[in-house]
Amino acid sequence: MSALFNFQSLLLVILLLICTSAYVHQIFPRLLDNRKHGLVGIFWKCARIGERLSPYISLCCVLMAASVFVGN
């Protein structure tokens, strides 16, 4: 089943995108700062969400990990 049709998998993909973008922006800040517009700008926006809402994002990651652990 595709992640587009499974809501939990879609949320997991979005959380991983936010966490990965925030990590890449922390390590290589110029990589995303130069590309704020267009399709690559999505990664810059996800990095901003990950930086500004990091306690909530980390809580969501823990909850998603617990739900995957309990589901299996």
Rank of each mutant, 00 (worst) to 15 (best):
R48S: 09
A65D: 04
S58V: 06
S58G: 03
D33V: 10
R35Y: 12
R35P: 01
V40G: 00
F7I: 12
L59C: 06
L59Q: 04
R52V: 13
S9W: 02
A22E: 02
Q26R: 08
D33Q: 12
P55Q: 07
V24M: 04
V40S: 06
L39K: 12
F43W: 08
G41F: 05
S2Q: 07
L11N: 15
I42M: 13
A3P: 07
H25D: 09
V70W: 13
H25R: 13
S2A: 11
L32M: 09
K36H: 05
F7Y: 11
F43T: 04
R52M: 10
V13Q: 11
D33C: 06
S9N: 10
S2W: 05
I18Y: 00
V62E: 06
Y23C: 10
F43L: 14
S9A: 15
A66K: 03
G50L: 03
C61L: 13
Y56E: 13
L39G: 04
C19T: 12
V24Y: 04
A3H: 14
A3T: 11
F5Q: 12
N34H: 05
V68M: 07
H37Y: 07
F69V: 04
L15T: 10
V13W: 10
H37P: 00
S21F: 01
C61V: 14
S21I: 02
N34Q: 14
W44P: 03
V62A: 13
P55A: 05
K45T: 04
N72C: 07
R52H: 12
I14R: 08
F43G: 00
F5Y: 11
C46I: 01
P55K: 03
I27W: 03
S67H: 09
R48M: 14
A65V: 08
K36R: 14
N72A: 15
G41V: 10
G71V: 14
G38Y: 02
G71A: 14
F43A: 15
V62W: 11
S9E: 09
A3Q: 10
F43E: 01
L59N: 03
H37W: 07
C60S: 14
A3V: 14
